[in-house]
Design a protein around this nucleic acid. Structure first.
Lengths: 113, 113
DNA sequence: CTGTATCCCGGACGATACTG
DNA sequence: CAGTATCGTCCGGGATACAG
């Protein structure tokens, strides 16, 4: 299916596959998280927080939960003290990486133009 | 440049080329507008409103202004009574279309998975 | 016909303190 | 270490009325 099939039917972008994609990667920090995970997975919660810097625990937590709910991130909890949790990407997330690169490249070529 | 060059430097996705791309196409109706323009350009204001349906004049107007400011849409005004304005896509917007298709296709393949 | 003015709401995002 | 609770802010988006 392509956008062409939505001709005359699109009422709200949120209802299209495009809208789904945007909801999945549109969060303010999601791209950063996916990218950092792609580089270092699996990553622990605090490592992620440290690597990003300007994000609060609450936001990082909520974004990770959404990514997990959308099937992009796997959360693995180790039952020990102190707690240990590791995050990694799913195959679904891996298929998104080339697309994210393209979005990035388009931005490079066109921002400030 | 790729996302790889942001390793260790990314603090906020909004500051990256990716963030720029998202700001340009992330509006709730922007993709729909771009898509409709691609199919029928040039399009008049009320035609666009009619084709979309569930959007108010104000929102359509504001989204078009943002798209114009981002260099994706050209607004051509005809000095006549009653007023006539036509909108069409710039070359910059045309280069975005394949990417939008890909985002759409990823959504088709992965939503509900 | 093509908009703008005004007022408003909800949801994403955030700062800070606290907890098992 | 890995979060949650609480409270707050900001802004995209919207309803309705009005304007050139």
């Amino acid at each position: 299916m392509s956008m062409a099939e939505y001709k005359g039917k699109v009422r709200n972008i949120q209802d299209t596959p495009f809208g789904y994609t945007m909801s999945v990667i549109g969060g303010k920090w999601k791209m950063v998280i996916i990218y950092l995970l792609a580089e270092n997975q699996p990553v622990r919660f605090n490592d992620l927080k440290r690597q990003i810097g300007a994000i609060t625990y609450k936001i990082l937590s909520s974004q990770l939960k959404e990514l997990e709910a959308d099937g992009l991130v796997v959360r693995k909890e180790y039952p020990q003290v102190p707690p240990k949790v590791e995050y990694s990407l799913t195959d679904k997330a891996e298929t998104l990486l080339p697309l994210l690169e393209e979005l990035c490249e388009w931005g490079v070529k066109n921002r400030g133009v």
